[in-house]
């Protein structure tokens, strides 16, 4: 599959009074055309910052992209300054973003129509009237009833699910090649979650849009994603197809995540096992494996003596994991 987005060795840090917070620490991932990719991890593991770095929207200061490449349609986006015309023409037009909080992600004092049609006008150069009509079509396409009237509504007059549909309509209106959905359903109830996800999926199917879902909800991605990247402490610790990751997790963290969520297909009386402890402070990262203090499988004499593990092949179909148990132990066996 051709790579639409290829992120290589991306590093983003926040320079705070506590020191350098390495939010994204040498992260590489790629998304093919029409592919659905999930980035999974706990809050604060750097998954959102990774995506914000892709479109250079990391708040600066204190944030700074320190290195790496973001190759989109064959061009390295990091070569263009964040406020350049090129980046402006990518954001919203080619790479659209959908954020977590539908309550606050739309401007409260502007009508849905004015926000939607402004994006259309910005990227297509359409006239006001035409942009408005395209906006109506976009609202219709995401299943909002009575779109003419809804164009004149304000966000506070809509429900959370409806607002998230508006966000998707904005993304769909300009025929974005890639949609980055950052926790798109976290703030919604379960039925609405499913509707919003189906809507995103239909865009992928009908238009060949690629989709990145950033989430901490494993249950959500197992149903929809083709491939999964698991992030921990600013690094990707495991990646592979959804099926491989679910059936044969190679990193103890992935395995821990899977054990901590209830599954319908699990046998009865299987207890949920939480991962003990909390994620490390990204400003004070150890030179050893970042997951070591919480790892149930850590080997004394191996994991506590070695430097941070790097991603290594862990199975078929581009299955990778960064764990000493995989490399060191299997070699020594």
């Amino acid at each position: 599959m051709e790579k639409l987005l290829d992120v290589r060795n991306l590093r983003t840090s926040f320079f705070t009074s506590d020191g350098e917070v390495r939010a994204v620490n040498d992260v590489s991932f790629h998304v093919g055309a029409g592919e659905v990719v999930a980035i999974v991890g706990e809050s604060g593991c750097g998954k959102s910052v990774t995506q914000m770095s892709v479109v250079q929207l990391v708040q600066s200061p204190p944030g700074r992209i320190l290195g790496g490449e973001v190759i989109f349609e064959g061009e390295d986006l990091l070569k263009y300054p964040r406020k350049s015309r090129k980046m402006m023409s990518i954001r919203g037009a080619k790479i659209a973003m959908i954020f977590q909080e539908p309550m606050t992600s739309l401007n409260p004092v502007l009508t849905v129509g004015s926000q939607l049609s402004e994006v259309i006008r910005t990227h297509t150069g359409a006239r006001r009237k035409d942009a408005w009509n395209s906006g109506i079509k976009a609202l219709e396409s995401v299943g909002i009833p009575d779109p003419e009237r809804r164009m004149k509504s304000y966000p506070f007059e809509m429900s959370g699910g409806m607002r998230q549909r508006v966000m998707i309509a904005i993304a769909a209106a300009c025929n974005a090649k890639l949609i980055i959905a950052d926790e798109p359903t976290t703030a919604l109830d379960v039925t609405t979650q499913a509707q919003v996800m189906e809507l995103l999926l239909s865009l992928v199917k009908e238009r060949g849009t690629s989709l990145i879902i950033v989430t901490h909800n494993l249950g959500l991605v197992t149903r929809y994603a083709d491939r999964i990247y698991v992030m921990y402490a600013g690094k990707i610790v495991e990646s592979g197809t959804t099926r491989d990751l679910l059936t044969e997790p190679k990193h103890p963290y992935t395995a821990g995540l899977l054990r901590s969520v209830p599954r319908l297909d699990a046998q009865k009386d299987v207890d949920l096992v939480p991962i003990k402890g909390s994620p490390p402070n990204l400003a004070e990262l150890d030179w050893r494996c970042a997951f070591l203090p919480r790892c149930r499988c850590a080997l004394e004499g191996t994991c506590d003596k070695l430097k941070q593990p790097v991603l290594a092949p862990a199975g078929e179909r581009e299955h990778f994991a960064a764990c000493h148990l995989l490399t060191e132990v299997s070699e020594n066996d």
């Binding site: 980046m87 919203g92 502007l110 994006v119 910005t122």
Partner: peptide
Amino acid sequence: QQDYVRTARANGIAERSVITKHTLKN
């Protein structure tokens, strides 16, 4: 700092409009 200003930026809205329309009115 609000989310909706981030949204406007993520949608490629020109900085002038981000300030005058999306920020100032609020």
